[in-house]
Amino acid sequence: MTISTDRLKAMFAAIAVAIEADKDRLCALDGVIGDADHGIAMDLGFAAARDATAALGDDADPTVVFNAAAKAFLNAVGASCGPLYATAFMRAGAAVKGKAKLEADDMVDAFAAMAKGIQDRGKAEPGEKTMIDAWLPAAEAARQARAAGASLPAALAAAADAAEQGAEATRNFAATKGRAARLGDRSLGHVDPGAASAVTVIRSMADSLADA
């Protein structure tokens, strides 16, 4: 099954619902090692992305949807997650440019481009206790699953599982990037809020496309 513009819009709506439901937990996680606003920023950003993509006409192609999400997220939020997720969506849009609908491989490419975009913008490496610790293993798991012949839903489910393991592993890392970097070893034992929210985003993407 191919992914239409409507499916992408529904995916952004699903992410917004999941993040809103998760807002308090993300704020609380951020309160431990940051400034307690991560849930608010993510909620603002994905609500804006949902509204902007929902407002697009039927003639919008997937690239237009991703770009609209990027711009809306960025302008609603700023902060750190604004540039990071905006870059992710712009890269996803660029990865599928010219396509009217997305095949399974296109979606996996877009997913990989999101992870790469976040990494490029944030200049983070694995193990630095950032959302990259969820996004990079997720993208790799999706690619491997797809290469092994998995369906798109199976590949995205594998990505979500890998993101979850990656986020859980951030407990063992001392932060060296972002605001928590100032904590150094005092950040040990706590899950990075950006990695935790990445799991929610990726899981809701997978759930939304589970019958694709």
């Binding site: 606003d37 608010i40 920023a41 603002l44 960025l74 700023g78 902060a79 750190s80 604004g82």
Partner: peptide, 11 residues
């Protein structure tokens, strides 16, 4: 001017 404790976006 950004949101509370959050950087303003580029625009």
């Amino acid at each position: 001017v950004g949101n509370v404790f959050a950087s303003p976006p580029p625009d």
